[in-house]
Design a binder for these strands. Structure first.
Length: 136
DNA sequence: GCCAACGTTGGC
DNA sequence: GCCAACGTTGGC
């Protein structure tokens, strides 16, 4: 099956891509939004994940991949939530800013633009390729 | 720091 | 099952 593409958001003050590089991989948990959770559960091992810095930077800064598919989040005291593990792949040579995304015709339909608050988004192969091109 | 957008919750 | 109120997120 072909790889799927995703985008996750994090505030760099909380957990930056640099930190992920240092850690090699991390647990992606504390997702408290149904749509985001459903996306998490759709992830397959090896899927590529764009890493976006929200609030500070507002740019796609690196690439990660799914290291472990969704499993129940043990740390949640209530509710039915999931976590995945993601591993750092590499940083983009140049961060792709939100402004650039908005200025690129091929990326107008990205959920980053249309659903800016969603913290785990799906990305089409064409969008993924366009981001990589802008970031290289 | 403010405010708009949006998802979730809870009362009816 | 609808809808108003509330909380959270994220861009500016």
């Amino acid at each position: 099956m072909a790889k799927a593409y995703w985008l996750v958001k994090s505030e760099p003050g909380v957990y930056s891509f640099d930190q992920l590089i240092r850690d090699k991989k991390t647990v992606w948990d504390h997702i408290r939004n149904f749509q985001a959770r459903n996306n998490l559960r759709a992830m397959k091992k090896g899927d590529q994940v764009l890493y976006y810095h929200s609030q500070v930077g507002k740019a796609v800064v690196g690439i990660a991949e799914v290291a472990r598919e969704a499993y129940p989040e043990k740390t949640s005291d209530k509710g039915d939530w999931s976590a995945v593990d993601i591993a750092a792949v590499k940083a983009l040579k140049k961060p792709v800013t939100l402004d650039q995304v908005k200025a690129t015709a091929a990326l107008q339909a990205m959920q980053l633009v249309t659903h800016s608050r969603l913290s785990v988004q799906s990305v089409t192969p064409a969008e993924y390729a366009a981001i990589l091109k802008l970031g290289s």
